[in-house]
Design a protein around this nucleic acid. Sequence first.
DNA 1: GGAAACCGTAACCGTATCTATTACAATTAG
DNA 2: CTAATTGTAATAGATACGGTTACGGTTTCC
Lengths: 148, 148
Amino acid sequence: MINSRFTVAVHLLALMSAGRERCAEAALTSEIAAESVNTNPVVVRRILGSLRKAGLVSSHPGPTGGWLLMQEPREITLRDVYRAVEEEALFSMHHRPPSSHCAVGRNIQDTLETYFGEAECAMQSKLGERTIADVLDDVMARVRAPAV
Amino acid sequence: MINSRFTVAVHLLALMSAGRERCAEAALTSEIAAESVNTNPVVVRRILGSLRKAGLVSSHPGPTGGWLLMQEPREITLRDVYRAVEEEALFSMHHRPPSSHCAVGRNIQDTLETYFGEAECAMQSKLGERTIADVLDDVMARVRAPAV
DNA sequence: GGAAACCGTAACCGTATCTATTACAATTAG
DNA sequence: CTAATTGTAATAGATACGGTTACGGTTTCC
């Protein structure tokens, strides 16, 4: 199971997107964000740091400081976010290399890397169909029409 | 990152599929299998136990005992294997529930479960396009034409 | 009936990863 | 100068995972 960094990253970008609709210059502080996510501000800063490295957000220290979106919510796909916070391949290979004395053991990793790569690519492509703006729209629709 | 159980499970089914081409009644023992995978027989038995629960293999104790395929390799997709060994959702939600005082915090999990579910579904669908027979064919093609 | 070869599973260990937390230096606005 | 913020290292605690040992249950075969 994939860790929760991706989930938190999308949450944070949705927060910043919502904040920007009220005031474009108001930066989100890690402390305020941490309250919404229900975690520690350091955890927020670490994840936003990854997003900054990917060019999605910027940060500024000091009073009036905080974090700002660097791209339009409509332009940021969940795939962009995923790739900003997840570095490794989705599927892991054998813990220890399989036997080289066995035809299957000798060749299955190459085979599986091909097949698994296709599957991960399909997953990322689906993520690429949704943006942060979609997420915020969906969240706000739920605010107006809460589940029964 | 997903653990290596899925990888090992596919490896084991490919081994059994290869063994069956030589002799349909010869069961694969967890000890022989563990040598190819380069792990401990108990690890093999644990994973094959999951596959048995899914109806993909059967086991038999005693001398001449071991593990046998219960379905045609051409009928077993990687999706079947994935679902046999992976129980939880691919993406994890927040470690602690987000703030209920925030519109985003209150609704984002429902939104993300929808979007993440679509992405996981796309990944599984791609896995569904490949079978154990495909894996073994690909492995054997590499045996005949090794990479340079 | 007894020995040998399997599976089934519980128990435990060491390691890695993840989240949370504290602490503190660096930067900036006012 | 003060206060508010980021940046990051260090650490702790929890969890998951793979590896290993141990041992009981089942089956084959002599």
